[in-house]
């Protein structure tokens, strides 16, 4: 599968996750967010950037529980809880946020 944006073609898997991580930029994130009906705010970007940093460091997209804990450690307890993250990304913080961040689907996510 694929989508077109600004005259460029981007390959995705059958669930819409980017195939090439290097293709990602903020325009791509905005496009993917739109597909997911998520209006990106500062708070969304904070999580997206956190996920990209996590992936660069460990080469995996974290599971929800791990993401929640790690965000709590870095951004504070008011953000490191699933209620906050599900408000930002209603279809699952790991699943939806990872897709917008241009990462693969988290391992263990069904």
């Amino acid at each position: 599968m694929a989508f077109e944006l600004n005259g460029k073609t981007y390959e995705t898997d059958e669930e819409g996750y980017l195939i090439n991580l290097g293709d990602w930029d903020e325009d791509v994130a905005r496009f993917l967010a739109q597909q997911e009906a998520v209006a990106l705010t500062e708070n969304h970007w904070e999580v997206i950037n956190f996920l990209r940093d996590y992936y660069n460091e460990f080469q995996i997209a974290p599971a929800v529980r791990v993401l929640t804990k790690a965000i709590g450690k870095k951004l504070g307890a008011d953000k490191g809880n699933s209620q906050y993250l599900y408000e930002l990304f209603p279809y699952g913080p790991a699943k939806q946020a990872c897709k917008i961040a241009g990462l693969p689907k988290p391992t263990g996510c069904v």
Binding site: E57, F58, Q59, I60, P62
Partner: peptide
Amino acid sequence: IKGFEKTWGALEDY
């Protein structure tokens, strides 16, 4: 091939 040396470091988070 994707390396996974770095991923061992994430096990603590899990």
